[in-house]
C-alpha cells in the first residue's frame, strides 16, 4: 500500500485515495478527433515512471498529480491540481 503525501493533509494511507487516470489523458474539449481518441482510449502505460491524477476521495476530496514509479511504487512528487499543474 502507498503512503501518499496529500498536499493538504500530509501523509495518508492509500486506502483513502482513488486513482483516476493518467495526466496525458486530459484533452481540451475542442481537441481534434485523433487527439481525443488517443487521450481517451490509449495509454503510454510505461513499465516505469508516469504522472497520474489521484483524488483524496475519503479525505479532503482534493485532486492531485502524482509522479511515481510503477514497478518500485516510489513516489517522486505530488502536486495539487490547479492552473499551474494541469489545464
Amino acid at each position: 500500500m502507498l503512503l501518499i503525501p496529500c498536499p493538504h493533509c500530509g501523509d495518508r494511507a492509500q486506502a483513502e485515495f482513488a486513482y483516476e487516470r493518467t495526466a496525458d489523458s486530459v484533452v481540451p474539449l475542442d481537441a481534434a478527433p485523433d487527439q481525443a481518441v488517443a487521450a481517451l482510449f490509449t495509454r503510454t502505460n510505461p513499465r516505469g515512471i508516469d504522472e497520474e491524477i489521484w483524488r483524496h476521495t475519503y479525505g479532503c476530496g482534493s485532486w492531485m498529480l502524482i509522479r511515481r514509479d510503477r514497478v518500485s511504487h516510489a513516489i517522486e512528487w505530488v502536486k495539487p491540481i490547479g492552473p499551474a499543474v494541469l489545464p
Partner: peptide
C-alpha cells in the same frame, strides 16, 4: 500485462493499462 510495454517497442500505444 506486458502488452503495452512490448508494443511500445514498435512505437504503439495500446488501449491497455497494466
Amino acid at each position: 500485462g506486458h502488452s503495452g510495454h512490448v508494443a511500445a517497442m514498435a512505437g504503439l500505444k495500446l488501449p491497455v493499462e497494466s
